[in-house]
Simulated scan of single mutants.
Amino acid sequence: MGGRGSYAAGNNVEYTYKTVGMVDGVKILQGIGNKHGLPESSHSSEAYIKLKPDGTFHEMRFYNKEHVLYMEIAYHPEQALTGNRHTPILHYHLYDDKFSKNSTGPFHRTKAKVLSKEMKQKYNKFFVGVE
């Protein structure tokens, strides 16, 4: 995937992600260079996955029909949910594209919420290495 998958002003843009695998039809992306997160937009995929270096699930982002990020599921410490900075927990954030005074970017992100039982069942196949 080039510079968020783009072709700018008739010039190819350097790749910032590479596909390193698949989980149930969803691409696992790895950043190139200093890119560590998943993209805010997608050209064709409805979701992307990022794994930790040990192969454990780290996060998954979901994109709407306009290819814009709308939800993220993550597995890492979230102090607001666990009370500490050490215990990883499956949680999610919802995004909208309205700029917020409290936001540093073009998206507003909700506070972390614990995955419901239904969400865990629906997305469990993607949670590689998570108990």
Rank of each mutant, 00 (worst) to 15 (best):
T104M: 08
R85K: 13
E14V: 07
P77V: 07
G21W: 05
E118V: 03
L81M: 06
N124D: 14
Y7M: 13
Y123K: 04
Y48S: 02
Q30C: 08
G83K: 00
P39T: 09
G31D: 08
V130T: 11
K122M: 13
N102A: 07
P53H: 03
T110L: 03
Y75M: 05
G37M: 06
D96L: 02
M119G: 01
D24A: 13
I32V: 13
G31W: 04
Q121I: 03
H36G: 12
F126Y: 15
S41V: 06
L29W: 02
G21E: 07
G83R: 01
K18N: 12
D24I: 02
D54T: 03
K111N: 10
S44Q: 10
G37W: 07
L69H: 00
F107R: 13
N124M: 11
K65F: 11
Y15A: 15
H43A: 03
G25W: 06
V20Q: 09
K111H: 14
V26L: 11
T82D: 13
N12F: 02
K125M: 07
K27P: 10
K101D: 04
V128Y: 03
K101F: 03
S45H: 03
E40K: 06
R61F: 01
H86M: 12
L69R: 00
M1W: 00
G21P: 00
Q79K: 13
K117M: 10
L90N: 01
H108W: 01
K27G: 04
L29G: 03
E46W: 04
V26E: 14
A112P: 11
D24E: 15
V130M: 13
G3K: 14
G105F: 00
I28D: 02
